[in-house]
Design a protein around this nucleic acid. Structure first.
Lengths: 157, 157
DNA sequence: GCCATAACCGACCTCTTCAGTAGGATTTGA
DNA sequence: TCAAATCCTACTGAAGAGGTCGGTTATGGC
């Protein structure tokens, strides 16, 4: 598997928040019930999302979470990265300060890294998919009727 | 990380085999030395590649491994899948007999799977990158000079 | 026929991550 | 003051990663 349930649960949580219309916060308990996910595990995940600045929280009674930005401005690369950590195809890929990607195998001597071309392409494909999908899209997709969804998926494959 | 070192080591092993010109088999020991990888671990990986029909082996003295097909006919989706298992973004994705992809969360009731659109796009991006890269490309890439490699990578990003 | 060299096979081991659980502390509206 | 909520830390069982080790089988060369 490329990703763990952290990404799965976390994205579902975000969609659930995005579904709510008003500005009042929604409690984790209600999200856990709606998605049938363990509340205490969701607490860990939402903490990551909060630290990444994707959701805001209000404590105390009638508190809960809401999106920190409009759903249309939240791209899934930020969400998945907050939940899963750095998205790189391979351990040897590091983020340099300039935002580029290096392969640590290249430093040792004359040998070229024979896998770099491959992982760069994979990285590009994943990044494009994640950065090109907004939370608003997922919210809209999940509320549509089945035939409409099937049509949307057809254009992907 | 999207993939483990199984994919990394395995791909390097395949490239090493692809580099050899002749039809005589190359021993795992020489590959391990060239790539500085543990021989006994490579044995496990090459077993997966052999079972997937990507390499053939000859036993005994002066034995070893060679590619089962020309490098240009080996695409990296087969290699990575042999090493890492089914490439799916998420646990809930299954391969159906028709070769399609289903989300197991959809079966339970009325609720649409809010993450399906996202994972389909990710899946598509990864598949495209893996299936669109041949072993021959990696072999050629790894033997070129540094400026040529940089130019090739530039067109990816 | 022996022997070095290889592929093959399975068991084991340590470490880290995953997927939670548990228990509490803190904040806040009613 | 109470209940409802976030917040925080620690713990746990299971699984996988990344090997290691020992032994078995096959084969070419002397």
């Amino acid at each position: 598997m490329l990703f763990s349930t952290k990404a799965e649960y976390g994205v579902r949580l975000m969609v659930e928040l995005g579904r709510q219309p008003g500005s009042q916060p929604v409690s984790l308990g209600s999200v856990a019930e709606a998605e049938r996910l363990p509340l205490s595990y969701l607490e860990h995940l939402v903490a990551k999302l909060r630290k990444a600045g994707l959701v805001t929280s209000t404590r105390g009674a009638h508190g809960g979470y809401r999106l920190a930005k409009p759903a249309a401005e939240i791209t899934m690369d930020a969400v998945v990265e907050a939940l899963e950590g750095q998205i790189a195809p391979m351990e040897c890929f590091h983020d340099t300060p300039e935002g580029k990607v290096l392969c640590s195998h290249e430093s040792d001597g004359d040998q070229a890294c024979s896998t770099k071309l491959l992982w760069m392409r994979v990285q590009g494909g994943v990044s494009k998919a994640l950065a090109g999908t907004t939370l608003a899209e997922l919210v809209e997709f999940s509320t549509k009727s089945e035939p409409t969804r099937a049509a949307a998926l057809g254009s992907v494959a």
